[in-house]
Amino acid sequence: MNEKPEKLIDKKGLRLDGRKADELRPLKLQVGVLPNADGSAYIEHGKNKILAAAFGPREMHPKHLAQADRMVLRCRYHMAPFSVQERKSPAPSRREVELSKVIKESLEPALFHELYPRTGVDVFVEVLQADGGTRCASITAAALAIADAGVPMRDLVVACAAGKVDDTIVLDLYDAEDKLGVADVPVAYMPSLNAVTLLQMDGILTPAEFEKAVNMAMDGCRKIYELQKEALKTKYMVVKEVEE
C-alpha cells in the first residue's frame, strides 16, 4: 500500500476489503498445536498468523524473581523478521517491549495468582505474519494457551480493536486501515465478568466516538469469545475420538 486511496469506505458503506463497518475479519482458532508447550494456541485473524505457547506454573528462572505469596506471569510478544513488508530485526524493539507489558497486564486479571506461590507462568507469542491488530489477536491466542495449559482462569480474555476510518467507526481494523485511518482503540475484555483488561488508543476521537468505539470493540470481543470456547472444546472432542 504505497498510495493512499481517496476513500477507505465506499458509497455503499463497505470497506476496502469488502467488509461492513461492524464486521470482523475471518477467524480461525486452534488449541494444542505445539507438542512441547504445556498449552498452546494458533490464531488466524484476517491475515494475522500468530502462535502462542504457555509454560507453567513452573519454577521461576532466575529464582530471585519468584514471589513468596504468588505466581508471576511473564509475557514475550515477538514478531518474526519475515512477518512484515520490510524485514524486521529479530532484536526486541521498543514497541515489542511495550506490547509484551500490556499483553501481560491484560491477562493478569484472569489468573488466580495466589494459588501457585513461588512459581511462574511464561507466555510466548510469536507473530508469524502481521496484518494490523496483532496485539489483540495475540491476547486472544495467549489466553487460550494459558487455558490449554490447565491454569485456572476467572474467564478467557479476548481482544479486538475498533477505530475510526474516514468518518466511520469500524470494527477490527486491518493494516491499511490502521495506518491510514483516524484512530485505533484496542480493547481486551473478559465477557463473563464485564471487565476491560486492556485499553489503548491512538488517533483523535470525540468522547462520543470513543464510547461508540469501545462498545463496538466489546461486541466484537463477545463474538470472538464464542469461537475461543469452541476451539477449547474442539481439542478435547478430538482426543475423545482417538481414544475410542
Binding site: 500490556v102 501481560k104 497486564e105 493478569e108 486479571p109 482503540v185 476491560v196 483488561t197 486492556l198 485499553l199 489503548q200 488508543m201 491512538d202 488517533g203 483523535i204 476521537l205 470525540t206 468522547p207 470513543f210
Partner: peptide, 10 residues
C-alpha cells in the same frame, strides 16, 4: 477530544 490512551497495571 481524546488522542491517546494507555491502561496499565494488573
Amino acid at each position: 477530544n481524546i488522542c491517546a490512551i494507555q491502561k496499565g497495571g494488573s
